[in-house]
Nucleic acid binder design. Sequence first.
DNA 1: GGAATTAGCGGACCGACAGTCCGTTTATCT
DNA 2: AGATAAACGGACTGTCGGTCCGCTAATTCC
Lengths: 199, 199
Amino acid sequence: MAGQHQERADAARNRHAVLRAAERLVAEHGSDHVSLDRVAAAAGVGKGTVFRRFGSRTGLMRALLEERSLALREAVAGGRPPLGPGAPARERLTAFLDGLGEIAEGNAALLTAHEQACADDKYTEPSYLFWHRHIASLVAEERADLDADFLAHALLALFDGELVRRTTRPDDPRRFTRSIQETATALLTAPPVSRPPAR
Amino acid sequence: MAGQHQERADAARNRHAVLRAAERLVAEHGSDHVSLDRVAAAAGVGKGTVFRRFGSRTGLMRALLEERSLALREAVAGGRPPLGPGAPARERLTAFLDGLGEIAEGNAALLTAHEQACADDKYTEPSYLFWHRHIASLVAEERADLDADFLAHALLALFDGELVRRTTRPDDPRRFTRSIQETATALLTAPPVSRPPAR
DNA sequence: GGAATTAGCGGACCGACAGTCCGTTTATCT
DNA sequence: AGATAAACGGACTGTCGGTCCGCTAATTCC
């Protein structure tokens, strides 16, 4: 049987046009001020098409962000060290935070747009779950005495569009990532904590 | 000169009714699903009255949250140690995080509602600025080698309604606050960092 | 107490937006 | 070319935040 349907040519063209229009509008105007009507108009397609392709505003933002982070995701899952498996946990974490920081620094507006669209259930987004599992497992490997799960949330909470914008300086474009790295280092090098037998 | 106008009796009554209705609705239904029409209806007043009193949805949520945190704010600013001035920075921070954690644990839904309403400019909210300045000054006092400003943002980023909800357990209602304290402790007890001459 | 003043009230109204629906178009396959 | 169904597009709907203005009633003044 013919396997999965090949996406029709016009559908693929429209998907691409919508993504490009959306990223342009989000970058130009703030994360809000970008209604899906506008996106559709800028892409030269009807509104229905946007929804058919992406399901919802949230879906569109998610698609944009995953487009940006696909490479990192693959490198982390199966690429070569230090991002991929094989390197010591500490180095993998540093490499990973560097990659994620770079994405954040280049897409602060998009990050904010995504946060607003996801609203309450950002913790159940596939991307979030993936990043969280990755960080938590590295932290656990490095420091069994810490609450890896909570610390992973803590680190991810720092990837906030507005915080990125407020931390980044024109003369120091990687300042945000550096701050993240320092925070992570501090957390992982702190003196041992004796936790009561958890739960 | 008669000083500032005394709030008219009916105005005070309505302000109170709106606040009570809003807190009830937010607690019952999720942070969304609470339109200002609903709040007005539940309070038995017209929609215009809600806006006259609170200016906007954001204003209403802010008022609710500040009502909850007024006592902590005053204790921090001018109360007795360890919350107020006088105690060592480390102890003041612990006491403060305990207080803020308790508020967060008891008002997770409200926290989420406020986050959504503030959207992008949560970093310019008066409350946020106050908490941030307080934390940053305590961190700076304790550890001159760290980026107190960024760490203060990092700690405040953890006070996320959904994260509170996901961390709290019925059998362990203060688990969230404990995790916060452990994180703060780790950050403040980490080995010294030699930072390049900042900027 | 009664009239004058004015803060406050309330709900109709507006513009914007996310998401739906369905008649029409068009890519693809044979 | 003709058949088929995927894809399109934009009119339409329901909801919501916020505004406006004619009316109500608390307060003040005499």
